[in-house]
């Protein structure tokens, strides 16, 4: 299944290095091929996304060198 956020993830990856230089550990709000902004808090970034774009898919992602996976000791994902 193709991700609904494929374009946004590519945009983030294309800009990851630049974002690391100015917004490490902040949250990037990405829509289409645009980095819309960076925010200190994840929920602030999401709320801004709702206000700007409405109820459509957009990407809020922590700016780090590598993605850190979420860990679960039980498996509900298969």
């Amino acid at each position: 299944m193709e991700s609904l956020l494929l374009t946004e993830i590519k945009t983030f990856e294309d800009n990851r290095l630049a974002l690391l230089g100015r917004a490490k550990e902040k949250y990037a709000l990405v829509k289409g091929d645009q980095i819309v902004g960076v925010y200190d808090a994840k929920l602030d970034a999401i709320r801004q996304g709702y206000q700007m774009f409405g109820n459509v898919p957009f990407l809020v992602k922590l700016v780090t060198e590598v993605d850190i996976p979420l860990n679960f000791v039980t498996n509900y994902f298969d």
Binding site: S3, V56, L70, T74, N75
Partner: peptide, 25 residues
């Protein structure tokens, strides 16, 4: 709920690693 994804996270479990999953507020 009619909501759309606002992120995508990687998930690791005892039997799988780096599985992409949508995030919702």
């Amino acid at each position: 709920l009619g909501i759309k994804p606002v992120g995508q996270a990687l998930v690791t479990t005892p039997s799988s690693a780096y599985v992409p999953c949508y995030e919702y507020l």
